[in-house]
Design a protein around this nucleic acid. Structure first.
Length: 243
DNA sequence: CAAATTGTTTAGCT
DNA sequence: CAGCTAAACAATTT
């Protein structure tokens, strides 16, 4: 269940291990000897990616579509375990995910301002990137991890509904005010998602994603594969305008 | 229970 | 070679 907000929650769950030494490493994805005995210096996020920072190197984890994690207790099958880290105060388990060791110099190549949930998120930069792709559909722009890092299909659908924009609208046709609203809502909804996920009420809060009727006009919602990425969009023909 | 899915990379084509 | 698309991969839910 890994859009940006879930990754932020994961980071908080992992925070207690910062400052501790890795006692043991399991999983065959990385060379454990390079990590064993090293101290976890910090955790950085970039969209859906998590970087566990050590001296010189870091472990990048991406949960992809079906990945998950557990803290302290392993209840899931070891078959799916890609990485396990033991610390003094507990353990971290990562399942069905992408795991890669990278040099810390790699972190300097990341555009941190593209992360919608980051404190350095730069909405103006996102706008500039979108304007460079005037023929792009807005549904594809939202899913573009170089523009809206951390946004996934749920956030895409809900942010478009909140701003009453039809997913197949072309960037060049969307009024600038609408575009500004959308950029704001991509971040706002991400934080609502985060709060609701933590409270365990996320699914109840969806207005269009996996829903049958428009909350505004009560008419049936459209469900359609949209854009180049062909990801499912849920939207209301009446209340969302095609620009 | 078949089908769908909160995602990304890569092979292979034009 | 750039640009695009289809395929591959995965586990859980409906």
């Amino acid at each position: 269940m890994p859009e940006g907000p879930v990754i932020l929650l994961m980071k908080e769950h992992l925070q207690k291990f910062v400052g501790e030494k890795v006692i043991a490493v399991s999983g065959s994805e990385i060379e454990g000897s390079l990590i064993k005995g090293k101290t976890l210096k910090g955790i950085k996020l970039y969209g859906k990616q998590t970087y566990l920072i050590f001296d010189e190197i870091n472990i990048r984890i991406h949960l992809l579509m079906f990945g998950s994690y557990e803290i302290d207790k392993q209840t899931k099958p070891t078959d799916n375990l890609k990485l396990g880290l033991s610390f003094k105060s507990g353990k971290a388990f990562f399942y069905t995910c992408s795991v890669k060791l990278l040099p810390n110099s790699f972190l300097e190549t990341i555009d941190w301002e593209a992360d919608v949930m980051s404190e350095v998120w730069n909405p103006e930069k996102a706008k500039t990137k979108m304007k460079k792709n005037p023929k792009m559909m807005i549904c594809d722009a939202l899913m573009d991890q170089d523009i809206f890092s951390g946004v996934g299909n749920i956030i895409k659908n809900e942010a478009l509904f909140r701003t009453t924009i039809q997913p197949e609208s072309l960037i060049e046709n969307i009024p600038i005010k609408k575009l500004n609203d959308l950029i704001s809502e991509a971040r706002n909804f991400s934080f609502d998602f985060y709060k609701w996920k933590r409270e365990g009420v996320l699914r109840k809060k969806f207005q269009v994603y996996e829903q049958k009727n428009c909350p505004t006009c009560r008419k049936p919602l459209n469900k359609k594969m949209t854009g180049k990425s062909k990801r499912t969009s849920f939207y209301c023909e009446t209340d969302q305008k095609l620009f």
